[in-house]
């Protein structure tokens, strides 16, 4: 939270294994490369696999006070449990990016919230890379918000992706772009 100027607080949540932390790190890295102030704060806990995972990213023009996000401007949820946990915390007028592949309910949120449903898993499967659903969702988010682009994220991806996964760079970049195209082209979500 900063005094003035641009400030965006984002929570990204899903279950362990969906690449939630990587998504947050990529967002933070992309923002850093764009010259923004940024903090990234992962949830850390006893559960390693299968539990809920979330991370908090703050991106701002000015110095960031707190890396812990209480009321996010934007929320990216990849599964139903995360929607239930975080949806009510969204700020008025906030943005909710929801993975409709795994969430089959209409979220109960304030009318002021802008809802973007993205079938992230389906789109990833279409690309032949089911594990890239996180990148699809991030691409959708970036295209929607517009202060950073899916292509900027694509350029930052090699910095945060472990070297042993670099062979997946092309397909993940495609996933980022596909997410972006989805929100860019499809106004009905």
């Amino acid at each position: 939270m900063t005094v003035n100027g641009f400030c965006e607080e984002i929570v990204i949540a899903g279950f362990g294994g969906q690449g939630i932390m990587l998504t947050g790190k990529l967002l933070a890295q992309t923002a850093m490369k764009a010259g923004k102030e940024v903090t990234y704060m992962p949830s850390y806990g006893a559960e390693v696999r299968g539990g809920t995972a979330n991370c908090m990213v703050v991106i701002a023009e000015n110095e960031i006070a707190c890396p812990v996000v209480g009321r996010p401007d934007s929320l990216i949820v990849m599964n139903k449990a995360s929607l239930n946990k975080f949806a009510s915390r969204l700020k008025k007028g906030g943005l909710l990016i929801m993975n409709s592949s795994l969430i089959d309910v209409d979220p109960e949120v304030d009318d002021s919230i802008e809802l973007v449903s993205v079938p992230a898993d389906e789109l990833a499967v279409e690309l032949g890379s089911p594990r890239s659903a996180n990148m699809v969702a991030l691409g959708a988010y970036l295209q929607k918000r517009g202060y950073l682009t899916p292509n900027a994220a694509a350029r930052a991806l090699p910095d945060v992706l472990a070297r042993r996964y670099h062979k997946t760079l092309p397909v993940n970049i495609k996933a980022l772009q596909k997410g972006g195209e989805y929100t860019g082209n499809n106004r009905n979500y």
């Binding site: 790190k25 933070a28 850093m32 102030e37 940024v38 903090t39 990234y40 704060m41 992962p42 850390y44 960031i64 890396p67 812990v68």
Partner: peptide, 10 residues
């Protein structure tokens, strides 16, 4: 503290 240890910033 746990925040400083876990968080990332430039």
């Amino acid at each position: 503290d746990g925040i400083l240890g876990q968080m990332m910033e430039p």
